[in-house]
Amino acid sequence: MHYIKTKTILSQKNGMNMYRGCSHGCIYCDSRSNIYDMNHDFDDIAVKENSLDLLKKALKNKKKKCMIATGAMSDPYIALESKLEYTRKAMELVYRYGHGFTCITKSDLILRDIDLLKKINEKSKVVVQMTLTCMDDKLSKLVEPNVCTTTRRIEVLKRLDEEGIPTVVWLCPILPYITDTKENINQIIDSCIDTNVLGIICFNMGMTLRRGNREYYYRKLDELYPGLKRKYIKNYGNSYALPSPNNDELMELFIKRTKQHNIMNNPDEIFEYLHTFPSKNKSVQTTLF
């Protein structure tokens, strides 16, 4: 871990990352790709030490309330967050200045902040996005070694539902020849139904690989699944998109089951929901009605 200074904290679409890099160790992580020009080891987390000051200024000066998002490049609930609390402090600022909040995570550490999630949701809007890739906890520990198991993440989704906090699941990536089975997809969807997930984001059944990410992923395949790398190279070469050979069958299953249970399955529709700030402040509505 090391500290860095940053010039800005919010993107044009109001996304932010308090950390750069991640300690979850997911073997497929796109954020390892060279395209992002990270000038330090991915596992050596860069902490943006002035990010909270920049965020306070940005939120205070925003003329229009909006949804503030985090987790696109680095999980906001990496292990360091339990000590540094940058994500929690950012949420406190979001609440103070009346904005909404959404994040993508794989960590049960988010339950530490359930008090803030509820306060923001009562005032404006909160949506928690949870990534689920494989139901087998032993397999999950191989491909996502330093984060809580899928079973635990489902328990988190259940708790959030009980507290009235909306949730969305990212069903990706689905690793060809590893997690691309009907059993896996059905079990994940079952869990989403049981926990009242509003939407599931799934572009297709497969994954993506770019330079930097590809080399790391293949090294891990050699460790975990000797010989499988050759199959990947033979079938995909250096392609960016690696669709599962079972993609058509699994996507048909996904669309059918989500429609049956009124779960949003169109990524554009879900993204619009995630980024739409309530037209009226909830506390004002309560006062008026």
Results as ranks from 00 to 15, higher is better:
residue 47 V to S: 02
residue 48 K to N: 03
residue 48 K to E: 01
residue 50 N to A: 05
residue 50 N to D: 06
residue 51 S to K: 03
residue 52 L to K: 03
residue 53 D to R: 15
residue 53 D to F: 15
residue 54 L to H: 04
residue 55 L to V: 04
residue 56 K to Q: 09
residue 60 K to F: 09
residue 61 N to Y: 13
residue 62 K to D: 02
residue 63 K to A: 08
residue 64 K to Y: 06
residue 66 C to K: 08
residue 67 M to G: 04
residue 68 I to W: 01
residue 68 I to G: 02
residue 69 A to G: 13
residue 72 A to G: 04
residue 74 S to Y: 04
residue 74 S to W: 03
residue 74 S to T: 14
residue 75 D to S: 10
residue 75 D to C: 09
residue 76 P to H: 06
residue 77 Y to C: 07
residue 78 I to T: 01
residue 78 I to V: 07
residue 78 I to E: 00
residue 79 A to S: 15
residue 80 L to N: 12
residue 83 K to Q: 13
residue 84 L to D: 03
residue 85 E to G: 02
residue 87 T to A: 09
residue 90 A to W: 00
residue 90 A to P: 03
residue 91 M to L: 12
residue 92 E to N: 06
residue 92 E to S: 11
residue 92 E to V: 12
residue 95 Y to C: 09
residue 96 R to D: 13
residue 97 Y to F: 14
residue 98 G to I: 07
residue 99 H to Q: 08
residue 99 H to T: 06
residue 99 H to I: 05
residue 104 I to M: 10
residue 105 T to A: 10
residue 107 S to W: 01
residue 107 S to L: 08
residue 109 L to F: 11
residue 109 L to Q: 05
residue 111 L to D: 06
residue 111 L to V: 12
residue 112 R to D: 13
residue 115 D to N: 12
residue 116 L to V: 12
residue 117 L to I: 11
residue 117 L to F: 13
residue 117 L to S: 05
residue 117 L to Q: 07
residue 117 L to H: 09
residue 118 K to C: 11
residue 118 K to Q: 13
residue 120 I to A: 05
residue 120 I to D: 02
residue 120 I to E: 06
residue 121 N to L: 04
residue 121 N to Y: 00
residue 122 E to P: 01
residue 123 K to G: 02
residue 123 K to Q: 10
residue 124 S to V: 10
residue 124 S to K: 07
residue 125 K to Y: 04
residue 126 V to C: 05
residue 126 V to I: 12
residue 127 V to L: 06
residue 127 V to S: 06
residue 128 V to M: 05
residue 128 V to D: 00
residue 130 M to D: 01
residue 131 T to D: 04
residue 134 C to V: 15
residue 134 C to I: 15
residue 136 D to C: 14
residue 136 D to W: 05
residue 138 K to H: 14
residue 139 L to F: 13
residue 139 L to R: 08
residue 140 S to N: 12
residue 140 S to F: 09
residue 141 K to F: 12
residue 141 K to P: 03
residue 143 V to N: 00
residue 143 V to F: 01
residue 144 E to V: 10
residue 147 V to L: 05
residue 149 T to A: 14
residue 149 T to G: 13
residue 149 T to P: 08
residue 152 R to F: 15
residue 152 R to E: 15
residue 154 I to E: 00
residue 156 V to N: 00
residue 158 K to H: 11
residue 160 L to V: 11
residue 160 L to I: 10
residue 160 L to K: 01
residue 161 D to M: 13
residue 161 D to F: 15
residue 161 D to I: 10
residue 162 E to P: 04
residue 164 G to I: 09
residue 165 I to Y: 00
residue 166 P to V: 11
residue 167 T to W: 00
residue 168 V to Y: 00
residue 169 V to P: 03
residue 170 W to M: 07
residue 172 C to P: 01
residue 173 P to L: 07
residue 173 P to H: 10
